[in-house]
Write a protein that binds this DNA or RNA. Structure first.
Lengths: 111, 111
DNA sequence: CGCAACATGTCGGTATGCGACATGTCGTCG
DNA sequence: CGACGACATGTCGCATACCGACATGTTGCG
């Protein structure tokens, strides 16, 4: 019997952290910046939110720390794990379901 | 200058309640059933969640009670308001943004 | 008669978002 | 040199929300 992955919706902060790390590994501050860009300015995480999310994602091993051999700043970074990628993939499916459900409700206008 | 609508993400329960009422007015129990159908079995709201959501939506006037002249059962129902519709429309836009962001991250497979 | 589905609600534990606060470094401009 | 803004990481506490468990009553059917 198939083990269906626990699919509680991801919060917006969690989604964006995973999405950003899925593009490239980054440290916390860089995440804040990239998420602003990625969301076209809509989402700005406070540090309270960000570091709380990072702690939980580390605990669940959806992301991991790693050491870029880089100079000084930017040495410690976070990277998404296979588990995290899978969660993001599941979320993407859910998001598409919701978008599909929502579309007909908003009338014809809106691209 | 434009007053940009406060656009905190809707939770999944809130989204589905609005989406369901957007198709037709319903009472609480009918909502639970319709949301199961609408979500293709994925979402099952507990009564604790449902009635909490309904109370808040009423307070914010995103939905309202009204009396169908109907017989006995099913008289009291909830109906979405213009404010609620607008919120749902905003959410739909957000959802499409997220879906668009998530899609390229999950690889080519997946319809 | 009894049971399942219908129908509505409360309560409490737990988690989370997030603003405010705290701390320190680096680079640059006057 | 001094100061300031961006870089960088974190904690604390409040408010809110989800949701399982519990409580209650009704309707219809076998």
């Amino acid at each position: 019997m198939r083990h269906v992955v626990e699919t509680t919706p991801l919060s917006e902060p969690v989604f964006f952290v995973l999405a950003s790390l899925s593009r490239a590994p980054r440290h916390g501050y860089a995440l804040m910046k990239d998420i602003q860009t990625l969301s076209e300015g809509r989402v700005r995480l406070s540090t309270g939110t960000l570091y709380g999310v990072l702690r939980r994602l580390l605990e669940d091993q959806w992301i991991e720390r790693f050491d870029t051999g880089d100079t000084a700043r930017d040495k410690q970074s976070y990277r998404i794990t296979a588990t995290g990628s899978e969660a993001l993939r599941q979320e993407s499916i859910r998001l598409n379901q919701l978008a599909r459900i929502a579309l007909p409700l908003i009338g014809p206008q809106e691209a």
